[in-house]
Design a protein around this nucleic acid. Structure first.
Lengths: 249, 249
DNA sequence: ACCTGAACACCGTTCAAGT
DNA sequence: ACCTGAACACCGTTCAAGT
């Protein structure tokens, strides 16, 4: 046992030596528990038992720290199925998409921290490589690869961000009231479809809610749209394959 | 002319009577010009020539103000083509999608303000109504409507947010350097596709850039993915139509 | 009724000073 | 080399006091 004498610990809450990795992990923990409002350089330092200014010896800035948190979460995305030769191209891309979404959905406060930061980190590049690999296996030609990749990112990341955004109810009471009022029957005049379907859509469809999450319809809807997108990829890739085959022969 | 004597204006920069609408418009102008960093209650009050605390008589809170800005931008989305009987269902939904994206892309700092706020405002409901109308015209049945709507929102809004996010380069120098380094040839070991295609993808594909916008490939990629999605909607709607017709007869 | 200045409880970041 | 306290230039919001 290398436990130091208890006297040495007096007044120092968990004083392990500081380094960049532990700072990022603690920052992620604070974000996960209390959202971005609970993550300031001051609260972070307090949680680590150091002074605020000590953090700046291991971390260059708060924006840098936030990007590091995003990369930490992206480490959860599994790219192994992408290179599994037993799987057909379509289910490889589906696995990657679901894993991506699962990672983002598992961290409901991450979207608060994605603002304006481009994710050009080791893990985001690992995922980009895997996605491009899948699209090629689908038969998407190099001329369409950029568009297909951007559309895939737009759907998978965009949907997930939007979903977690929608899950976070505004803590502002003025806003809560304004939004509740908007859903009252009286304000649905002129919106016949919304009125007709509100019972079905409320708390299930994006935006049409004022509290709570999407009652698990996020999973179903994400899959529904993903299959729609993959259907088109498959058809387009198949068409491209036949075309190149035709010109070769 | 009801111009008051010039003496009455001494030292009062544009002192028009305060009201909620002008506050929201000025706030939007500040956001549009300088991003969210340039929009504080203090700078806003200064731009309007009043004290900070005076704003709180017309606007309940900053979160409320941000939602009002979003609604102001959503007013630009044109839902008229949705109800044009001359247009086929598919091009109605395409028009709506493009108009939505155009509004979001025209305000590159709006994404900084969308954080955690649900858009349950008059204009967001007008757009939701229009989208649901289009999906029904497509032949999507009520059982699939929620999923189809969520997938559409995820793609259209998600893609647009992601695109404007990516367009905003991090102002932090520490971050700029880290991202540039990530794109150096040395760091592309283990990413064969990225290395092979980097010349084509850089500054065109999402994430794979460290400065500048997506060189206009956002337009093309958005349209590419949208057509892929609409293809699937059309097929699914058609199948549903045939199915209900079959059971009816 | 509407606006003001001052105050409260926070931010991220820097920097001379300590060990 | 690493950490500290104090300071700087900001935040959103409140509230007694003015007119």
């Amino acid at each position: 046992m290398s436990q130091p004498h208890w006297l040495l610990h007096r007044g120092t809450p968990e004083r392990r030596r500081l380094d960049g990795e532990t700072i990022v992990e603690q920052a992620h923990a604070l974000l996960h528990e209390g959202g971005s409002a609970a993550l300031s350089m001051r609260t972070l330092a307090a949680a680590l038992g150091t002074s605020t200014s000590a953090l700046y010896r291991h971390v260059p800035s708060k924006p840098w720290l936030l990007v590091a948190i995003v990369d930490l979460v992206l480490a959860e995305v599994d790219t192994a199925p992408t290179y599994d030769p037993a799987e057909p191209a379509r289910s490889r891309l589906e696995s990657l998409s679901m894993s991506y979404r699962r990672a983002l959905a598992a961290h409901p406060h991450l979207h608060e921290v994605l603002t304006s930061q481009v994710a050009l980190t080791p893990n985001s590049m690992r995922i980009a490589e895997a996605a491009l690999f899948c699209l090629r296996e689908h038969g998407i030609g190099d001329d369409e690869l950029t568009d297909a990749y951007n559309a895939w990112c737009g759907y998978v990341i965009g949907f997930s961000i939007l979903e977690t955004k929608a899950r976070n109810v505004a803590p502002d009471p003025a806003l809560q009231n304004a939004m509740r009022a908007q859903l009252e029957q009286a304000d649905l005049d002129g919106f016949p479809i919304l009125r007709e379907l509100m019972a079905e859509l409320a708390d299930r469809a994006y935006g049409l809610r004022w509290q709570g999450d999407m009652l698990g319809s996020g999973d179903a809807s994400f899959g529904w749209g993903l299959r729609a997108l993959l259907d088109s990829y498959e058809r387009r890739g198949g068409a491209q394959k036949r075309r190149t085959k035709g010109t070769a022969e």
